[in-house]
Computed example of a mutant assay.
Amino acid sequence: MTERETAPASRGDVQWVGFVSSATGAVTWIVARVWFRGEIPVELYGVIQFGVPMGLGWLAAEVRWRTARRRGA
C-alpha cells in the first residue's frame, strides 16, 4: 500500500461521526456548566465547536493512517 492509497472504509469510520458530534456537545455542556455556570462566552463556544472536532479528526486520521500502514507491511 503506497502512502497515497487509503484502506477500505469500516464500520468504525462511520460511527466516528456520531462520536465526534456527541463528544463536542458533551465538552460544550461541561465547560458551560462547570466553569461558566450555564452561560458560555460566544468566543469560547466557537473555539470548542471547531477545536474538538478538529482534534478528534486529527486523532482519527492518525490512527487510521497507522492502522493502514501496519496492515500493508
Rank of each mutant, 00 (worst) to 15 (best):
G18E: 05
G25H: 10
A9I: 01
R64I: 00
A7I: 05
E62H: 11
G72D: 15
P8F: 10
V17E: 07
V27F: 10
D13G: 11
V47W: 11
V42P: 13
T2R: 06
A32F: 01
T24M: 14
V27I: 08
L44E: 03
V14I: 12
M54D: 07
I40C: 03
V34N: 02
E3C: 07
W58Y: 14
E3H: 10
I30F: 09
G38V: 03
R69P: 05
G51S: 10
V20Q: 04
M1Q: 12
T24V: 05
A68W: 05
E43N: 04
M1R: 09
R69W: 11
F50R: 08
S10I: 04
G12D: 12
T28E: 13
Y45F: 11
T24D: 15
I30H: 02
G25R: 08
A23S: 14
A9N: 06
A68S: 11
M54C: 13
A61C: 08
W29P: 01
R37G: 04
V34A: 02
L44T: 01
M1C: 14
M54T: 06
W35N: 00
A60H: 09
A68L: 03
R71A: 15
A68V: 02
I40D: 00
A7T: 06
P53H: 06
V42L: 15
V20D: 01
